[in-house]
């Protein structure tokens, strides 16, 4: 028998999604969200997709990956090359995205299968190397126009990013709360114990890694088609670290945290734009402060859930 999907919590989330879409639309037409904020919104959306997909690998499954920018670049360049081939037809974005996803899956399997059979931080080193290899390959290929990169037209606007943000969140969160996700969490908590329980740890680690890679690639496609220029140097090791910072800042294992921190960091970056000289200092000092006072990240492992909220109300009613 099929489980009823129209629970109170699911409906509440649906309302949130539709509500925020409408709210943004209203704010844009009212002129409150101008073009600048729309660009910032694109950055925020793409950063959130990157952060939650990395959070799945690091926070949920406990595997340290430093190659997220590599998968992002695969998505970006797949889309870039195909957009160029199809002369900027709108459908080329989605074909490029699909190609990017396929390549990412294959590459993720190649990187992850040997390293994730081992326990420990081998994945970090392997992904670190992989990220650099991808960048050098792109730098030396003719089709990617080498170090000069590709100049692309802007093909998507915020509704597209919004839709993919919603899809990514639903898929990744559902994965986390499914049986697969619980197995991943058990791997994070204690690998030996979960093996004893009969969990194929390698399989679940690879699964989480591939899902993370897919969404990183989608984020890459979104980036390429909304920010005009892609160059190999954009997807350097630093980009992986930037994404990692968002995840750690928000709290490893908390998707709500990734949302909040991606939002905060982007807003912070933009609002400090005119303080060129002290911006990086403020940014760095904030990170240090957060790590001193909240080593588990802003939200730790806290997750915002409507079900919890409803439970609270229910309890209150009972008490009365």
């Amino acid at each position: 028998m099929r489980k009823n999907q129209f629970t109170k919590t699911n409906l509440a989330w649906l309302l949130v999604i539709i509500g925020s879409y409408l709210l943004i639309n209203v704010l844009i037409s009212a002129g409150v969200i101008n073009k600048i904020y729309q660009t910032v919104m694109l950055t925020i959306g793409i950063n959130i997709i990157l952060a939650i997909s990395l959070n799945l690998i690091i926070g949920i499954t406990g595997q340290f990956s430093l190659g997220h920018a590599g998968f992002m670049s695969i998505g970006a360049y797949s889309a870039g090359v195909i957009v160029k081939m199809m002369d900027g037809a709108p459908s080329s974005v989605y074909i490029g995205m699909l190609v990017g996803i396929l390549i990412s899956i294959v590459v993720a399997l190649i990187v992850a299968t040997p390293t994730l059979r081992l326990k420990g931080d081998y994945l970090a080193i392997a992904t670190l190397g992989f990220g650099e290899i991808i960048r050098i390959v792109i730098q030396n290929m003719k089709i990617t126009n080498g170090a000069a990169g590709l100049v692309l037209p802007k093909l998507i606007d915020w509704p597209v990013v919004f839709v993919f943000l919603v899809i990514s969140t639903i898929v990744i969160v559902s994965f986390t709360y499914s049986a697969y996700g619980r197995a991943c969490i058990s791997v994070r908590e204690d690998e030996i114990a979960s093996e004893t329980m009969g969990i194929n740890t390698t399989k679940y680690k690879i699964m989480a890694f591939v899902v993370g890679a897919i969404f990183a690639s989608i984020a890459g496609t979104l980036y390429a088609t909304s920010f005009y220029v892609i160059k190999p140097e954009i997807f350097s090791f630093n980009k992986s670290i930037d994404i990692l910072v968002i995840v750690v800042f928000g709290g490893m294992g908390s998707f709500t945290g990734s949302f909040v921190s991606a939002l905060l960091i982007s807003v912070l970056n933009t609002s400090l734009q005119s303080f060129a000289d002290i911006r990086t200092i403020i940014y760095g000092a904030l990170l240090v402060l957060i790590m001193i006072f909240r080593p588990q990240g802003l939200l730790g492992k806290y997750e915002f859930k409507f079900s919890k909220l409803f439970d609270k109300f229910a309890k209150k009613e009972v008490r009365q």
Binding site: I36, T39, Y223, R279
Partner: peptide, 21 residues
């Protein structure tokens, strides 16, 4: 009107929009 793009091309996009407005 001075702006810093942190040597980052996606920041440059935001700044170009800001300057135009």
């Amino acid at each position: 009107v001075e702006y810093d793009n942190k040597s980052d091309s996606s920041e440059a996009v935001t700044i170009a929009t800001t300057l135009a407005s």
